[in-house]
Design a protein around this nucleic acid. Structure first.
Length: 139
DNA sequence: GCCAACGTTGGC
DNA sequence: GCCAACGTTGGC
């Protein structure tokens, strides 16, 4: 069981859109970056992830669950790109901002801070628990 | 809206 | 296989 972080611009696809999909979930399509794709290929059904609003928002707003392992991305014919499906689990009671994360010594090694351009990234168990605490949400 | 950082492409 | 040019991401 692993932990991840998914980034999305809320203008394109925000937390409310994700919630609206309900338990069926939604394909995390459109990823055209090898590192991000490779991360998705490592995911198992039941893995949990943070849902992060980039560009506008700059905060972790919710928790999602992987509900289908990697499969071809329906938005392209290019066989290089595939993606998982994710569904919303619950919102964070208190969204955790990028500013908070940057300020927190326990989170200084997060990929979100170190490699801000990677849109699908791993989260360690320690980081997961810590952010859940900040977010006033059970891990 | 700007631009730094990063990833990808393609000529050599 | 190098690296310049180009495109994209995302914080500010």
């Amino acid at each position: 069981m692993a932990y991840w972080l998914f980034k999305s611009e809320p203008d394109e696809w925000g937390w409310p859109d994700q919630v609206a999909r309900g338990p069926a979930g939604e394909e995390w399509h459109g990823i055209r970056n090898y590192q991000a794709r490779n991360n998705m290929r490592l995911m198992q059904v039941g893995d949990l992830g943070f849902f992060y609003h980039s560009r506008t928002g700059l905060e972790i707003v919710g928790i999602v669950e992987v509900c289908a392992t990697s499969h071809p991305d329906s938005t392209t014919e290019d066989p290089r790109w595939d993606c998982v499906d994710i569904r919303s689990v619950r919102p964070l009671e208190a969204p955790v901002s990028l500013e908070q994360i940057k300020r927190d010594p326990e989170l200084s090694e997060m990929v979100l801070v170190k490699n801000s351009r990677l849109s699908v990234q791993p989260v360690t168990e320690q980081e997961w628990k810590h952010i859940c605490k900040l977010g006033k949400t059970k891990p």
